[in-house]
Amino acid sequence: MQISGRLELSRRHLLIVGAASLAASSIATPPPAAAQSAPTGAPVMTRVSFDVNGETHQLELDTRTTLLDALREHLHLTGTKKGCDHGQCGACTVIVDGRRINSCLTLAVMHQGDEITTIEGLGTPDGLHPLQAAFIEHDGYQCGYCTPGQICSAVAVLAEVKAGIPSHVTADLNAPLRLTNAELRERMSGNICRCGAYSNIAEAISEVAGRSA
């Protein structure tokens, strides 16, 4: 709980800093179509605003900044993890406009106006999301580093199944979907857990899926 309080403080602090630097900025966004390239390697700064967990943020960022680094380094929302920075592990999974994506492989500047949900937006230590509670109950994690990504992914997986989106293991593409064990495991396969909590994660998600079904 102490830790959560600390993060809250840091975030508010940063918002002020962000606003101040924004006010001082003279760079217009978006840059004109024939925007100057950067032969000297000088950062190209641009403004972007998006909602994170229901709160609007305006940032002035290097165009190179990924959504992941914008969350972690600029908004201090460090619940979203950097495991590989190359789309190979899933630790950075967040939900953007209702869909899970790897936040390491998308530029922050490409998310103007988007609604982003991170692990911090799903629940708090005092007000856990049902999946967060189920992960704790079923011990669906060990070191905890892939966990926020697993949980964000799981939230989206349940929605994907509800929406009838098929998967690699769906037996009949033209029949109604059922969330079998195989479906769950295939759909979660973009989230690597090196501690090997898969069996428990599957049970945690199944429990919540069963409850909501």
Partner: peptide, 10 residues
């Protein structure tokens, strides 16, 4: 990653 400028095409 080298610096780059960015635009959204219409």
């Amino acid at each position: 990653m080298r610096s780059f400028s960015y635009e959204r095409a219409a």
